[in-house]
Every structure is written in structure tokens, then in C-alpha cells.
């Protein structure tokens, strides 16, 4: 545990000194604000007509101008934008060691490589949860500011549950980018994988097979394709298996692969 604490302290220090926390906080702020604008437009049909494009996009997101609708919209933002942001966080945590050529300094230490990998994933998890909390706080603040109706205990519970479940699945999938950044020894391969999976998730979901493609599952859970395309247990299990496999393979890769950089 002492080794893990030491590894966590160093990862937190590295993260806090970088620009990425500010960038990701800003990204989530923008995401939350855009969600608020959507709901505001839905609340005001006249304004929606005058901003026709924005209004049609809001309809496309299946959003309604009430608390349940706003929670679903936030979950959708997390499923798509969150995958991008959480993926970039994980990519940075692993890829920077190769880009800055510091990976070699982590390989022959009393602290095991597996502990360092674990610390990186824990920081990625905590960071992503903090960003989820941020967008949720923005949602709650803007929802109250807009005077949304439909706030009941069950609606709040269901809405919060959808947001956190979507976030949890998205964070789980982000582990794959840690693996890609490690095996690819830098940011770029992981960013490429990130965009390919993001694009594939949208296309496969649009084709109706999203429930079977792990990267589409968080979007479907958030309700982006409507209630008829909710993922079942196999889809959710698939996400968990992908995340677990990516984490374990990353750990094994750091432990066993030849490190020549």
C-alpha cells in the first residue's frame, strides 16, 4: 500500500502540474453549458424556431425540457464527449511517459511496474469521476436556474443513476486508450484509436447493432437512440470485459514487453 500511495502521489503531482486538468474542466464546462442551452431552447419554442438548426439538434437528442430530459441529455453528452475527454485523460497519463521519454525511469524501481500502472488507472478513474461530478453540478445548477419541472425523488434517482452508469461505462472503456498509448508508445496511436472507436460507435449504433459493440453501449444506455435501443446485460458485460482486458493487458505489457524507449 505504501508503494501505491507513493505512485499515486507522483501521478497526482504530474497531473496537477500539467495543462490537461484545466483543459478537461473547460471541456466539461462547455459540454454542460451546451446541454443547458439545448434545454433552454426546448423550453422556449419561439427561440427554437428562430435558431432552427439548434432546435432540430435538440429534438434529435430526444431531450425534453424537464428534469428527466435534462439528465438524459447530460448522460448523452458524457457518452460521446466524455469518451473523448476521459479517453484523452487516460491517453495522456500513459502516453506522456513515452513522449517525455520518462517511461524508462519507471521500469527498474523498488515500486513494481504494476503498481505504477494501477496508480495511473486510479488517477484516470478519479479524474473522470471528478469531471462527471462537474457536469452533473452544472446540470443541477442550470436546471434549477431554468426552473425545470419534473423533479421528483424517483426522477432524480433515475436521472442520476443513468448519468453515473453512462459515466462508469465510458470510464471503463477509456482503459483501452491507456493500452493503446502504452503499446503505441505515445499519444498519437491512442488518439487514432480514440477517434476510430468514437466514429465506429456512432456508425454501428446508427446501423442498429450498437448493443453488441462496447463503444456504442454507453450512448445507447444514455438513451441517445431512444428507448427501443437500450443495451441489454450482454452489451454491458461486453463493456466491462473490454475494460478489464485492457487494464490487465496494459499491466502485463508494462511488465513483460521489451522497453526500448
Amino acid at each position: 500500500m505504501r508503494d501505491l500511495a507513493a505512485a499515486l502521489q507522483t501521478e497526482v503531482l504530474k497531473a496537477l502540474r500539467s495543462k490537461l486538468p484545466r483543459v478537461t474542466v473547460l471541456a466539461m464546462l462547455v459540454g454542460g453549458a451546451v446541454g443547458g442551452v439545448f434545454i433552454f431552447v426546448l423550453q422556449n419554442p419561439d427561440r427554437a424556431r428562430s435558431l432552427g438548426l439548434l432546435g432540430s439538434k435538440a429534438q434529435f437528442a430526444n431531450a425534453t425540457a424537464d428534469w428527466p430530459g435534462y439528465f438524459h441529455l447530460t448522460a448523452q453528452i458524457i457518452a460521446v464527449g466524455g469518451l473523448l475527454v476521459f479517453g484523452l485523460v487516460t491517453t495522456w497519463l500513459f502516453g506522456r511517459e513515452f513522449s517525455d521519454r520518462t517511461a524508462k525511469d519507471l521500469l527498474a524501481l523498488p515500486v513494481a511496474r504494476a503498481t505504477i500502472v494501477a496508480a495511473k488507472f486510479i488517477v484516470a478513474l478519479a479524474w473522470s469521476l471528478a469531471l462527471t461530478a462537474e457536469i452533473l453540478a452544472i446540470t443541477l445548477a442550470l436546471g434549477h436556474l431554468l426552473g425545470l419541472h419534473g423533479w421528483t425523488a424517483s426522477a432524480a434517482l433515475h436521472g442520476l443513476g443513468t448519468v453515473f452508469a453512462t459515466s462508469a461505462l465510458t470510464i471503463t472503456l477509456a482503459a483501452t486508450y491507456g493500452l493503446a498509448a502504452s503499446v503505441g508508445r505515445g499519444y498519437l496511436p491512442a488518439v487514432a484509436v480514440l477517434f476510430v472507436t468514437l466514429l465506429a460507435a456512432q456508425v454501428i449504433a446508427a446501423l442498429g447493432y450498437g448493443a453488441w459493440f462496447p463503444w456504442s453501449v454507453p450512448s445507447l444506455l444514455s438513451g441517445i437512440a431512444g428507448p427501443q435501443q437500450r443495451p441489454g446485460a450482454p452489451g454491458i458485460l461486453g463493456v466491462i470485459l473490454v475494460g478489464l482486458a485492457a487494464t490487465l493487458i496494459t499491466e502485463q505489457w508494462w511488465k513483460r514487453a521489451d522497453q526500448t524507449q
Binding site: R2, D3, A6, A7, Q9, T10, L13, K14, R17, S18, K19, D100, R101, T102, K104, D105, L106, L109, P110, V111
Partner: peptide, 20 residues
Amino acid sequence: SAYPELTVRENLDIARRLHR
């Protein structure tokens, strides 16, 4: 190599922690 955005002292402190 060193973490570019960390100071000399912070870089050394990371090495200190990871060497127990």
C-alpha cells in the same frame, strides 16, 4: 529525461518517493 512541467525539486522528489 525529466517531467518538463515539474521543477527540479519536484522531479527529484518523485524519484525519492519511487525509490522508497
